[in-house]
């Protein structure tokens, strides 16, 4: 029997890798993929909790997270498209209109 903690550590590791990607990558598409990675990490922990607590609620939550992730991907990629069309670049370090 694999202990729950192992799953949670795995989940945390994937989450942190996703976060690292989000914080450090130049390419906005990869950043976006990092966000998906973080969502997946959460899904892993939810499903494993569900399994160990013999409860379906985690699954329901994962189901909704996947729905939202799909919606988010559609919108996010549309935003990237619009951005790319206006800026001719997908690199966030070249976008600093908000610089004070």
């Amino acid at each position: 029997m694999v202990p729950l903690n192992w799953y949670l550590i795995l989940s945390a590791a994937v989450f942190m890798i996703g976060m690292f990607g989000f914080l450090t990558r130049k390419n906005v598409i990869i950043m976006f993929m990092s966000v998906e990675l973080m969502l997946n990490a959460v899904n892993i922990s939810l499903v494993s909790f569900s399994h160990y607590l013999q409860d379906m609620r985690g699954h329901i939550l994962v189901f909704f997270i996947i729905t939202v992730a799909a919606a988010e991907a559609a919108i996010g990629l549309a935003i990237i498209l619009a951005l790319f069309r206006n800026k001719q670049t997908a690199h966030v370090d070249e976008m600093n209109e908000m610089k004070g």
Partner: peptide, 17 residues
């Protein structure tokens, strides 16, 4: 203070993290 506002998304995200 406005030097903090670099306009770079990742800086904000790092501060948030």
């Amino acid at each position: 203070l406005r030097r903090v506002q670099t306009g770079l998304m990742q800086h904000y995200a790092t501060i948030m993290a």
